[in-house]
């Protein structure tokens, strides 16, 4: 499969999964919050295109795209959203805490910025054991308001750890624009000030993101190159939480979204593929999605006894 075909399959799959989530959401089969990545898929897809299966990734509460791009199990994800026992966290995590250890997807957190140091600590272990792996650390512009962001970047730079920091800058922390939260807009300049080479990609082009991420990951893999910081500009099409749009709230104008919707990376990459190849990809993805939702539908809810399990890991 060509890079374009791989990337398109990922983009289309994530877009369609989330459109299905949005479609079923009003029926209340998903009784918990969902933070959709629609419009932002190309960042996770580009980043994960640069990773190997044994690499690790840490994300945020808006991690459907990252989870799927990193190879997380689709059936287990949808079942998790449905609160079913077959979910990736047995129904005890929900959309905000997707995890797939086998795929290297180490969980997402609902508290902004909290997973950044986890990626750094994981990378410390990787480097201590001299493993040729890298750790991807994805967070939003909101996380760069938090103190833990600076503490974590400093430590990663100090110890020259193999972390690829990736800021998905969609400009909004819930409904508050970056200009109302930060005096200086250049997030990657702050990473540079901490001694981490950094670069900003303006248009969310997955091929450009993949190329830059691959170069950085390959340089740091198993060596002493240290972290790299990528700021990826993108845009959230949907409301902060939930399946709908929120332009009527008045905190942003639809005109701000329009260039991003016109430049939709899913459509752009689709146009690069021969129609028959594109159709084959879409058909396979649609079948997979239908299967995953059917699997979630028919899976059982957890037994009552599951309330009490997993509070602690007990020795076997």
């Amino acid at each position: 499969m060509s890079e374009a075909a791989r990337i398109y399959r990922q983009l289309y799959r994530i877009r369609r999964v989330e459109e299905e989530v949005a479609r079923v959401y009003p029926t209340d089969v998903i009784k918990s919050p969902v933070h959709l990545s629609i419009g932002q898929e190309s960042v996770s897809v580009g980043l994960c295109e640069a990773l190997r299966p044994e690499d690790a990734a840490f994300g945020t509460y808006r991690s459907h795209a990252l989870y799927l791009a990193k190879g997380g199990n689709l059936r287990a994800m949808i079942a998790e959203l449905y609160g079913k026992a077959t979910g990736c966290a047995k129904g005890k995590g929900g959309s905000m805490h997707l995890v797939d250890v086998a795929a290297g997807m180490f969980g997402a957190s609902a508290v902004v910025g909290t997973t950044i140091p986890h990626a750094v600590g994981y990378a410390y272990a990787v480097k201590l054991r001299r493993e040729p792996r890298v750790v991807l650390c994805v967070f939003g512009d909101g996380a760069t308001d938090e103190g833990v962001f600076y503490e974590s970047l400093n430590f990663a730079a100090l110890k020259r750890l193999p972390v690829l920091f990736a800021c998905e800058n969609n400009r909004y922390a819930i409904h508050t624009h970056q200009r109302l939260r930060q005096h200086l807009p250049e997030i990657c300049a702050r990473a540079a000030a901490l001694g981490i080479p950094s670069e900003r990609i303006e248009d969310a082009d997955p091929f450009a993101i993949a190329a830059r991420a691959r170069a950085a990951a390959d340089a740091m893999r198993g060596g002493d190159a240290g972290p790299f910081f990528l700021e990826c500009m993108t845009y959230r099409w949907k409301e902060h939480v939930g399946p709908g749009e929120d332009y009527a709230l008045g905190y942003r104008e639809r005109s701000e979204a329009e260039p991003w919707i016109h430049g939709d990376q899913v459509a752009k990459v689709a146009a690069q593929l021969p129609p028959d190849e594109r159709a084959r990809i879409e058909e396979a993805v649609e079948a997979e999605i239908a299967d995953a939702f059917a699997f979630a539908e028919k899976s059982p809810f957890p037994d009552d006894a599951e309330l009490w399990t997993d509070v602690f890991r007990e020795a076997p």
Binding site: A56, F58, F106, G107, T114, T115, I116, P117, H118, A119, V120, G121, Y122, A123, Y124, A125, V126, L128, G147, V148, E151, S152, N154, F155, L158
Partner: peptide
Amino acid sequence: TPLAEDAMTGVAIGMALAGL
């Protein structure tokens, strides 16, 4: 470590997730 109790606690968690 640096004076960074918040991040260094998170670093410990990340290390533990990696098997340390």
